[in-house]
Design a protein around this nucleic acid. Sequence first.
DNA 1: ATTGTTGTGTTAAAGTTGTGTCATAATCAT
DNA 2: ATGATTATGACACAACTTTAACACAACAAT
Lengths: 217, 217
Amino acid sequence: MLDILIVEDEPSIANLLYVNLSEEGYRCTCAFSGHQAADFIEEENYDLILLDIMLPEISGYELLEYIKPTGTPVIFITAKDTVTDKIKGLKLGADDYIVKPFQIGELMARVEAVLRRCGKSEKQLIFKDVVINIESRQVTQRGQAVEFTVKEFDLLIELIRNKNVALYRDRLYEKVWQEKYAGETRTLDSHIQRIRKKLSWDDYIKTVFRIGYRLEG
Amino acid sequence: MLDILIVEDEPSIANLLYVNLSEEGYRCTCAFSGHQAADFIEEENYDLILLDIMLPEISGYELLEYIKPTGTPVIFITAKDTVTDKIKGLKLGADDYIVKPFQIGELMARVEAVLRRCGKSEKQLIFKDVVINIESRQVTQRGQAVEFTVKEFDLLIELIRNKNVALYRDRLYEKVWQEKYAGETRTLDSHIQRIRKKLSWDDYIKTVFRIGYRLEG
DNA sequence: ATTGTTGTGTTAAAGTTGTGTCATAATCAT
DNA sequence: ATGATTATGACACAACTTTAACACAACAAT
């Protein structure tokens, strides 16, 4: 799983980024100051850093100098009024930049683009003896191909991306089916059963009574 | 597959180039500084280098001296205001140059032209027992010529360039037909069937139900 | 005019997905 | 504990959607 560090002092924006990127399957960490960010960067290697330029204490510029040696790609986040000439200087070090206020969709696209460009985009997921090739949408278990339908495949990915997390039925449903969860239906259950059956995963996909499901392992 | 190194510090332009060239089937790498570029060049042989002149640290000129001994063709990218006389001098070392802002189409054409001129253009694609000659647009299977119409040919190339990738109907259609995919039409299907038939590729072109098609092998 | 290409419409086949039923399991109040 | 209540498992099946196969007409090229 890919790690993204969000360096942003405005909680609402940090949160927006955190929620959306997490939902897309990235593991996120938020730093609300330059200091905190520096600590995090010290401790761990990130695959991408989203960096707000206007930070208290240490500015984004300074932080960038700190990041550069690690070779981690950076996307700058900048407020609209500071775009003009400053940016041009800034761009020197960043892999991309985006202007606040931004469309969340645009940001997601840029994140994906930068990761792809840096050869870090997620090509496959692995859980136990199962390998999932995202690009080709193929699943193999111990090298043997196992066929999955669209819904099953999407559900499987959602489970693996959130392994060891109890996923609420409604969230799970809404994520995979892209529509409100009405409840009172066997749809989600059926699909879980189908996945369990195809992969003999009775032991891995646990049901969390009254909550939902959890992929354990 | 041909390797292209993009040396460009402006992320938006680097990205533009990356996306478009990747879509055309080139394997791309981006370097955002002269240093990084030098490292890449050290490590790997590229078939073509797109080089922005105005770079921080090491300038494009210097880098060119570094590239020359490797014999790799170079296309210069230059901002409009620096064109004048400087370029004329520069051209001595480069195989072509293009002025920012440029039409992406023009750049693609120049890339192709330079590669062809250097005898590096992708002459053929091979998949299993099928050989596709891009220039002459001829297809042979075990040495036997097989006739393809324009659309079929383009579709076939798109499939082969993306083998083992599940291609969404809409993307596939939009790539080959160069227009929005409206859906509710049998056009794409028909063409897939025709390719399958001509090459007896029922086993290789898999349909991914509700998604599209995947060339497998 | 002739030939070949390409898109579309139709019907049949194939695959998918949601739902209903009933059995079973978990939880809770008594 | 016991039974009532509610949630989930297992499974079958029908409704529905999507694709294959094919023929043909519109269109373009020669």
